[in-house]
Design a protein around this nucleic acid. Sequence first.
DNA 1: TATCTAAACGCAATAGTATTGCATTTAGAT
DNA 2: ATCTAAATGCAATACTATTGCGTTTAGATA
Lengths: 146, 146
Amino acid sequence: MIRNSIQVLHAQGYKVTRPRLQVVEILGKAQKPVSPYEIQKMLKQQGRYLNHVTIYRVLELLCHLNLAHKLPSEKGFIKCILGNREGCHRFMICHKCGAIQEYADDKLCRNEKEIAGEIGFHTQYHVSESYGLCSSCYKGELAGNV
Amino acid sequence: MIRNSIQVLHAQGYKVTRPRLQVVEILGKAQKPVSPYEIQKMLKQQGRYLNHVTIYRVLELLCHLNLAHKLPSEKGFIKCILGNREGCHRFMICHKCGAIQEYADDKLCRNEKEIAGEIGFHTQYHVSESYGLCSSCYKGELAGNV
DNA sequence: TATCTAAACGCAATAGTATTGCATTTAGAT
DNA sequence: ATCTAAATGCAATACTATTGCGTTTAGATA
Ligand SMILES: [Mn+2]
Ligand SMILES: [Mn+2]
Ligand SMILES: [Zn+2]
Ligand SMILES: [Zn+2]
C-alpha cells in the first residue's frame, strides 16, 4: 500500500510528503470509508496532527491517482485495492458492519453502456454501489432469526 | 406530479401541507438535482419562505415515499419519474448540462446480484449513476471539435 | 361549522463539513 | 549546500446538517 503509493506519487511527479503518507497509512488500515475529519481524529489519537485542509487536498490527489475512491453515499474515502484495471471500480457495502468489497466487472459496464446508448447517452464512467449484507453478517442474521 | 404526490401523501397517512407541496413543485420544475438550500433560494425568488429544517424534513419524507431520490454524488435531490416500479432506480447524468435521465433495468440488477452472490454478498438495493454526455451535449461536442 | 389533537412547522442554537487566500515550510532537483 | 516550485498550515469564511422546543395547523370528529 505505502510502497505502491510512493511509487505512483513519484512516477506522476508528485512529492512524497509526510502528510500524504500518513493519510495513505490511515486509509490502508481502515476497514470502512473514512471522512477527512475522521482521518484527522485518527491521526490525533496517534499524537499526530494534520490540518483538515491538507487532508482534503491529499484525498483529492489520491483519488485523482486512483489510489483511493470517494464514496459519496457513505460520505467517506476508501483505498483502492484494484489498481489501474480497466473499467470502473464498484463497491459492495455491508450496511451492518460497514465492510466494503471493491470489484470491477466489464460485462456490467458494457450492459450499462448499452442501455444508455439506446437513448443516445454516452457514458464515460459509472458509480455503482450495492448495499446489503456481507457473508458473515448474513450468517449472523440467520442465526439471530432462529 | 403534484396530483400524484397528494395522493401518495394521503394514502400513506401523511398530511398534505403547503411546505410539502411547494417542495414538490420545485422538484417538478427542476431539470437537475437541487439541494435543500437551493430549494430555499428558489422559493425565495418566488417571494415564499420555508425554513431549511422544514425542507430537509420534507425531502426526507419524499424520498421515503419514493417520490424523490437523493443523488449523493450530486449532493442534491430529484423527483422520481418512475413510480413504484420494481427494482432499483438508476440515473444517467450529463456532466455538461446536468440533465438527469432516470431508468430501471431488472437485468442489470440480476447481474449485479449474481456477481455479489458469488462472493457471498446479499444485495438489498443498488445505487447506480452513469456519468457522461446526453445526446444533445454529445452532438454539441462533435460540432465543436470540427 | 366548531372543536380537538397529533402531526408538522418555525425558530434558535449548535455542530459538522468544505473552500479560499496567503504566508511559511519543504521535497527533491541541481 | 543552495534553490525553487510545490505543498502545508493558518485564519477566515461559507455552506450544510441536526436537535430541542414552543407554536401552528391539517384533517378527523362531533
Ligand atoms: Mn479502485
Ligand atoms: Mn425513482
Ligand atoms: Zn457485514
Ligand atoms: Zn447534456
